[in-house]
Design a protein around this nucleic acid. Structure first.
Lengths: 187, 187
DNA sequence: CTCTATGTTTACCGATCGGTACACTTTGCA
DNA sequence: TGCAAAGTGTACCGATCGGTAAACATAGAG
């Protein structure tokens, strides 16, 4: 299990796909941008779709790790961490290269619900839901499942709105809403 | 100003783009699907981008008209209409061909904030924001601007989540959250 | 020292991309 | 009746699409 080249390809492909979109990024462009020959790319991945799936797996791992860690760094109790999720998002939105959620993009370009790329994007969201539900439960909040789903709606909305950019600070809008929803779920 | 053919093209192109995505729908496929010759299409629209912009204009008009009217049909007072927005969304999500928000898709495929397609998508969201803010104000709710932004975050989140489909009924989750947020903004 | 895995370059495949040229047909109106 | 607008089919353009063939370079391990 050597790391290096293959992982390097996936990592650089992630950047390119995130910046340019999936369909708009051709394999030739990818080869030119990464400096890795097309032949080598197709030794590692049988199709472009396989490469995209690998990219999404990496993104899922990175994003969830980053978000969960950042939430823990920003707050101590589970309840405060739920709220801190939106501060973490705000940091992300403020990054220069922010272009929205990669999984929303992926499911926008591969719309069929049975398409592997679409299914994997949905799986990412499901993983997030499990974690946030668990956190809401640990916080001792009433109806943790429903609350988690509501908070995640705010998160999705904030990510989309931050990309569409017609609003100043969607993360803080979401945070204010989240605080009220959490308050309403105290028991 | 003859209607017919040009409008027919835009309407059918809307269906095709919504079903298949923008980049994935070629002009040849469009010609085959609509029965309108490529030559005619390029007589009406100088580029594919121009056609997409026309499609988005039509979609904006249709969607906003539909949503506003449905909200009024479903509820009487402005405050109830704000809540009814999510019942209207639920109806939309339940339609067989539902594939998420066309403007989110468009901004996902044309990511550059300065791209005309991206800008027009943002404009659609801004129009919605104005209307919902106005409604929140008519409902006599405190901090109508902030509340409207929060409700719209729920709406965006619900549309995305309904498309990703990892959750049973995002519209009703959003509605429950909206009710609590509105309640918190009574004065 | 050789074998094998991993990588490379270059050229190519058929299909499709957005867009155009050109000659022809239909149709509403004066 | 005749003319112009609007629409048609067909064939084409160079570029790019995802993917492949073949011959060659490099390097670590037995």
């Amino acid at each position: 299990m050597r790391p290096t080249k293959r992982d390097e390809l996936v990592q650089q492909a992630l950047q390119a796909f995130y910046r340019n979109g999936f369909q708009a990024t051709g394999m030739d462009m990818l080869a030119a941008e990464t400096g890795i020959s097309k032949t080598s790319m197709y030794k590692h991945f049988r199709t472009k779709e396989d490469l995209i799936l690998a990219v999404l797996r990496l993104r899922d791992e990175h994003f969830r790790n980053w978000l969960y860690r950042r939430m823990e760094e920003l707050a101590e109790t589970p309840r405060q961490q739920l709220i801190a999720m939106f501060d973490a998002l705000e940091e992300w939105f403020a990054e220069p290269g922010y272009r929205g959620c990669m999984f929303i993009k992926a499911s926008s370009e591969y719309q069929d619900a049975n398409h592997p790329i679409h299914k994997q994007s949905a799986e990412h969201k499901r993983m997030l839901e499990i974690h946030i539900t668990d956190l809401a439960r640990k916080a001792g909040l009433r109806d943790a499942d429903a609350l988690a789903r509501q908070l995640l709606l705010l998160k999705e909305g904030a990510m989309v709105t931050a990309h569409l950019g017609h609003t100043a600070n969607p993360a803080q809008d979401a945070k204010a809403a989240a605080i009220q929803l959490i308050e309403a779920h105290r028991q």
